[in-house]
Amino acid sequence: MTVLGTRALNRAALARQLLLDRADLPVAAAVAHLCGMQAQEPQAPFAGLFARLRDFDPAELSDLLVRRRLVRAHLMRRTVHLLTAEDALAWRSRHDAMLRQRGLSAYRRDFAGIDLDELAAAGRAVLADGEPRTMAELAAELTDRWPGPSRRALGEVLVAALVPTVQLPPRGLWRSSGGVRVVPLADWLGHEADPQAPPGSDPVGRELVRRHLAAHGPAATADVRAWCGLAGLPGAVAELREELVSFRDERGRELLDLPDAPRPDPDAPAPVRFLPAFDNAVLGYQDRSRIVADEHRGLSVAGERLVLVDGRVAGTWRADPAALRVEPLRRFTRAERAEVADEARRLARFLSDGEREDVRIC
């Protein structure tokens, strides 16, 4: 079986993530290809798409949210993702058990002895009037009936785990700071979410595996699980095996892939890219060594914004009122420093509508 080295996997991941060369894609098509984008920081998808698309217009993303073509919802790993309406509807029910389990993990004592199905039904009934509510408002309407959990726990578990909801604009619009208000997913999109498949069949699981490989492959089954948070995908993988090709990484893990997916030359040049916090280019794997060194792995879950140099995490960045600042994790060559500065200026202009391009590389 062919062994793919770390650099080969890196270039494949960059190509699938639209980071090897900016793509000429509409925003909705890019979000669909990426299987959604992590969006717990509401402005993160704008920086993420700026890194991936040519001539990206942030107004297009905002418009798609307003027109309900894209939505913000809890899904993969119980984190907020920006998704196409079609994917949100098709995938939500497949994630129900995981969302419930993870949603309760931090509040298990609060909900001991509570019938969660009854609580979910009550939450849906409150939201059935179509009036958007904050988590606190939703919890306030139910706290007399369930006084045990804190209002924070009640609201968070209802919205993030028990009741399929979407976060409404202006949350997630370009340069908006709107708070979280939710309505039921099906009501907002005018369709019911797809039901769970009957036992012994997992069409959504197979679709998730295919889509993950298209956006992240070659990948191990552990990588697929790390990306979506779902444990029950081995059956879906087994059903797909005849469609897939196999490799091994340098650790000996089996990697699966779509036969015709891009696997660029390991020596293909990789341009500097600036990623937002929690980007799935990093979080979409259990083994993240293809893109970040083990000693820096913690940065990927600490909310740091990452700088890729030669395809790997080599620094962090932040934008403040004075400048866009870059903190290298290693010494840059003169050529690398110049390329980092050029891309930083482009990002600074994008974030400021061309009003600022001051850059500091510390």
Score class of each variant (00 low, 15 high):
Met1Gln: 15
Thr2Val: 07
Gly5Lys: 11
Gly5Val: 03
Thr6His: 12
Arg7Tyr: 12
Arg7Ala: 13
Ala8His: 03
Leu9Gly: 14
Leu9Thr: 05
Arg11Pro: 03
Ala13Cys: 11
Gln17Arg: 13
Leu19Asp: 10
Leu20His: 03
Asp21Gly: 13
Asp21Trp: 13
Leu25Phe: 11
Val27Thr: 05
Cys35Asp: 07
Pro42His: 11
Pro45His: 00
Ala51Thr: 04
Asp57Gln: 05
Pro58Leu: 02
Leu61Met: 04
Asp63Leu: 03
Leu64Val: 00
Arg67Ser: 05
Arg68Asn: 12
Leu70Lys: 03
Arg72His: 00
Leu75Pro: 04
Leu75Trp: 08
Arg78Gln: 15
Thr79Arg: 07
Thr79Asp: 06
His81Cys: 03
Leu83Tyr: 01
Ala85Ser: 05
Ala85Lys: 02
Leu89Val: 08
Met98Val: 10
Leu99Lys: 13
Arg100Leu: 10
Ser105Arg: 12
Arg108Phe: 11
Phe111Asp: 04
Asp117Phe: 05
Ala121Leu: 03
Ala122Phe: 12
Asp129Gly: 03
Gly130Ala: 02
Glu141Val: 07
Glu141Pro: 09
Trp146Glu: 08
Ala153Arg: 07
Ala153Gly: 11
Leu154Met: 00
Gly155Pro: 02
Gly155Asp: 06
Ala161Phe: 10
Val163Glu: 00
Thr165Asp: 04
Val166Asn: 06
Gln167Ile: 13
Pro169Ala: 10
Pro169Asn: 09
Gly178Pro: 02
Val183Cys: 07
Leu185Gly: 05
Leu185Glu: 03
Ala186Ser: 05
Asp187Lys: 01
Gly190Lys: 01
Ala193Met: 09
Asp194Ala: 15
Asp194Lys: 15
Gln196Asn: 13
Pro198Asp: 03
Ser201Ala: 14
Gly205Cys: 08
Glu207His: 13
Glu207Phe: 09
Ala214Gln: 14
Pro218Trp: 09
Pro218Leu: 04
Pro218Lys: 10
Arg225Gly: 09
Gly229Cys: 07
Pro234Phe: 07
Ala238Leu: 02
Glu239Asp: 15
Ser246Val: 14
Arg251Ile: 01
Arg253Ser: 10
Leu255Gln: 06
Leu255Glu: 04
Leu258Asn: 10
Ala261Gln: 08
Pro262Glu: 05
Ala268His: 00
Pro269Asn: 13
Phe278Asn: 06
Asn280Lys: 07
Val282Ile: 09
Ala293Cys: 04
Leu299His: 12
Ser300Trp: 04
Ser300Ile: 01
Glu304Lys: 14
Val309Met: 00
Val309Gln: 01
Asp310Cys: 09
Val313Asn: 06
Pro321Phe: 03
Pro321Met: 01
Pro321Asn: 06
Pro328Ala: 07
Leu329Pro: 08
Arg330Thr: 06
Phe332Ile: 00
Phe332Asp: 00
Arg334Asn: 14
Ala335Gly: 11
Glu336Ala: 08
Arg337Asp: 09
Ala341Ile: 09
Asp342Lys: 12
Asp342Trp: 09
Ser352Ile: 04
Asp353Glu: 14
Asp353Ala: 15
Asp358Lys: 10
Asp358Ser: 13
Asp358Gly: 06
Arg360Pro: 07
Cys362Trp: 14
Cys362Val: 12
